[in-house]
């Protein structure tokens, strides 16, 4: 494992309403971290700040390299982590081209990125849908595409915000299987926000509970 993260004393308010109130946690071992808590408890905000998509009002998220060196919050660091949003945000093109996007903006060679995209689509079971417009996928498939698009770029830390919130039981099991397979295959840190207690128990190496804007380790 080459990248670790630590959130220290995060505070965040929206329109004067505090959502995070001094939230701290360290992601320093590989495995699956599950963040649970009631709706509106601040799980998504915490993930978005950790994934460097938003800035906290107070506190900081520090990313440390293998040697313990603090990394600058720049595009190089942002390209080593990723967040899959609850609403995936697929591009209006084929499933295959959706996967290629993250690789293309990194300047990867055409043959390499196509090979990688095919591998990832096979891993998430969407290879047969590679030429289909992503807008025509079912909600479960869209969620798998979101995960595949994130996995394609080989993130060292993967954040998943409610990856199974809007999908049926079968699709949920498929996504859980993908996450467990990913854990077996890589030594990445996977952080998942979910309000599904059963899923939390099934997947978690480390269970975190968010309550009133703070994290209580389970």
């Amino acid at each position: 494992m080459s990248l670790t993260a630590a959130a220290a004393g995060l505070w965040k308010s929206y329109q004067g309403t505090p959502v995070l109130k001094g939230c701290s946690f360290a992601f320093d071992k590989s495995g699956i971290y599950i963040l649970t808590g009631q709706n509106g408890s601040g799980k998504s905000t915490f993930l978005r700040i950790c994934a460097l998509l938003e800035k906290p009002d107070q506190g900081e998220v520090r990313y440390l390299s293998d040697g313990g060196k603090a990394l600058r919050n720049d595009i190089q660091l942002k390209r080593r982590i990723t967040l899959v949003l609850p609403k995936v945000g697929v591009f209006n093109t084929t499933t295959f081209k959706n996967i290629l996007y993250g690789l293309k903006i990194r300047g990867m060679k055409k043959e390499d990125r196509e090979k990688r995209a095919n591998e990832i689509l096979e891993f998430v079971g969407l290879l047969h849908k590679k030429d289909q417009n992503a807008f025509t996928l079912s909600s479960g498939e869209t969620q798998r595409l979101g995960i595949a698009r994130a996995l394609a770029i080989g993130p060292e830390i993967l954040f998943l915000d409610e990856p199974t919130a809007s999908v049926d039981r079968g699709a949920t099991e498929a996504i859980e299987e993908i996450i467990l397979n990913l854990k077996k295959k890589s030594s990445s840190i996977i952080v998942i926000a979910t309000h599904d207690r059963g899923q939390a128990e099934k997947l978690a190496d480390c269970l975190m509970v968010m309550e009133d804007g703070r994290i209580i380790t389970g």
Binding site: L53, I75, K78, T82, V88, G89, F91, Y101, R106, I153
Partner: peptide
């Protein structure tokens, strides 16, 4: 959809690449 901007940013796009997306 505003989520497109966020999605491309989470995939490592620079502000210019986000605009292009």
């Amino acid at each position: 959809d505003p989520v497109i901007r966020q999605a491309s940013a989470t995939l490592g796009a620079t502000p210019l690449q986000v605009t292009a997306a």
